[in-house]
Design a protein around this nucleic acid. Structure first.
Lengths: 201, 201
DNA sequence: TATAACCTGAACAAGACTGTACGACTTAGC
DNA sequence: GCTAAGTCGTACAGTCTTGTTCAGGTTATA
């Protein structure tokens, strides 16, 4: 789901569409205002070809968003989220913290071009994964229960995103990012009155 | 500094300039792409009047940014940041968490229109205030020292910003915001191995 | 009250982006 | 190899934004 016809079109058409969607995800991930000319150029196709496959800007954004989420899910599906929720959280962060970066700007573009219902629909999948992890951690007594789950999920993503900003600002190198995020979020999720776990080295 | 001439111009001119800067801060705070027509309309003046006082878009953005920071500093100057750093942090959050909201989108506009040097210059003041507080909390043994100060400051602002997102999404009411932020950041700042302090009710 | 500063709408030029149309060239696939 | 599908560059219309100019009306201030 999310991709264009993969059966009726010709091989080179499919190749073009793929290049466009990929370029769109990259360009819009960098700059939500990226023009269709820019995307077409980055994809190595003419602007007219883009319009042959996508009838409007919104369709391109939708396709790029879907692709980014598909890629993200693909990566996140390989992560083992069972066992100690604190370790699972660390694995989740290690695998996915850089995924947030590209999608963040894309979401801005999506919010301007797509209907709220579509946005919600696209976001339901990935959000559920983390929510479940946090909920399990709370049920097993490892995470605090004095704050709403939605808030905790948002904090997690927010801190991940802040790491990418720090990297861009040159105040953080990407090899330390996962550690910093884990150490921060793990502490933030700790129940008041109990000690903060030592972060993994 | 930051404001236009307040002596040479006539009274109604000063009034117009003020209305424009105020409207710009509001409009750009909502949407960093807001056009000058939009800003002029919101200020209740003609578009030409705007150009009579500001020679370019960048000048408007700069003025709006300066104004927002001035207002922020004004508010933050009333906050007592002495005493127990954990309580001081709570007071800081309570006073200023909503200030981050308006400035965040403004910063996006500023980053596109202003020179990096100017951005840095504008940001130096407010950043120093929090940095000093965090540094003091570390020196007094209340905050963790295993993460860089710049990272901790960024986490604080990031979590503040995430609160405004949660409010917009309808998952949080603004009366709970300060408490959630404080509870989260206080835990995040706690040294590993030591217990998380109970948040203020 | 006189005058200079100020405000105004209308209109213009230049540039960017979207979406569409056309004719000609290339290529996939039977 | 033939044909339809796909691609290409160019060009056009429509819209939007940024700045600028101009002539005429309003208002602060001395």
């Amino acid at each position: 789901m999310g991709s264009k016809d993969t059966t009726t079109k010709r091989a080179d058409a499919r190749r073009s569409i793929d290049a466009i969607v990929q370029a769109a995800a990259e360009c819009l991930g960098r700059n939500p205002d990226a023009s269709l000319s820019e995307i077409a150029r980055a994809a190595g196709v003419g602007r007219v070809t883009l319009y042959a496959h996508f009838s409007s800007r919104a369709e391109v954004v939708d396709a790029a968003m879907s692709r980014a989420l598909d890629r993200g899910n693909e990566v996140l599906d390989t992560v083992d989220l069972t066992g100690d929720p604190r370790l699972a959280l660390h694995r989740y962060i290690e695998a996915g913290w850089h995924l947030v970066d590209g999608t963040r700007a894309l979401i801005v573009a999506a919010q301007r071009e797509l209907s709220p219902a579509r946005i919600l629909e696209l976001h339901a999948g990935p959000a559920a994964r983390v929510e479940a992890l946090v909920a399990r951690g709370r049920a097993e007594g490892h995470f605090r229960t004095d704050l709403p789950i939605s808030w905790m999920v948002n904090v997690l993503h927010s801190v991940m995103h802040s790491a990418t900003e720090e990297i861009r600002a040159g105040r953080l190198t990407s090899d330390h990012a996962a550690h910093h995020i884990s150490a921060t979020v793990l502490a933030a999720f700790t129940t008041p009155g109990t000690p903060v776990p030592e972060p993994a080295p």
